[in-house]
Design a protein around this nucleic acid. Structure first.
Length: 165
DNA sequence: GCCAACGTTGGC
DNA sequence: GCCAACGTTGGC
């Protein structure tokens, strides 16, 4: 019998990227990409187990001017082993990762739409309904983090999105 | 450029 | 298993 994936409501996430490393503009050119190089176990667990096909992704530029949510992406392939961990020439090579039991995972995301204008960190902070966003919490460095349905809707509204994607 | 907050590593 | 040292993240 084929295993059936339990249906669950679509979930929402925020992925951080330094635009110098990989920008939303680059994703627009690429159409899709695999989200490689995450080397944090908490984020790994999300990529491996929680972030599923069809989920929504807010694309955030960190260490940037401006720091902002700049666009929307969606998960087009659920978690699978990050190929860069096995490539000894790659910056993200991990000698300790066993191919039979991979340590690091990626998902594929696809470009959906750019925000009408970047939703800056200051704008997010100024919005009371977003005060609980993990992104804004002190000391939160998680590069892949959950966003609630309400936060997702609010940020899309701020970004001039007519659809909820 | 600074540095606080974290996460990881490795000696013991 | 503790914890000091170290490296990284990422806002400021």
């Amino acid at each position: 019998m084929a295993p059936s994936k339990a249906k669950r409501p679509r979930r929402y996430w925020l992925f951080k990227s330094e635009p110098e490393a990989y920008s939303f503009e680059q994703l627009k050119k690429d159409k899709k990409t695999f989200w490689s190089g995450v080397r944090n176990y908490q984020a790994r667990n999300l990529l491996r187990d929680e972030i599923l096909l069809g989920d929504g992704v807010l694309f955030y530029h960190s260490n940037a001017k401006p720091m902002a949510v700049v666009g929307i992406a969606k998960v087009v392939k659920s978690g699978y082993p990050d190929p860069t961990q096995f490539d000894s020439a790659d910056h993200y090579y991990d000698q300790k990762s066993d191919p039979a039991d991979p340590r690091w995972f990626v998902v594929d995301i696809g470009h959906v739409a750019a925000m009408r204008e970047p939703i800056t960190r200051d704008m997010l902070k100024a919005n009371e309904s977003l005060e609980d966003m993990m992104l804004l919490a002190r000391g939160s460095r998680l590069s892949v983090q959950p966003v609630t349905r309400d936060e997702w809707r609010e940020v899309l509204l701020m970004g001039g999105q007519k659809e909820t994607w």
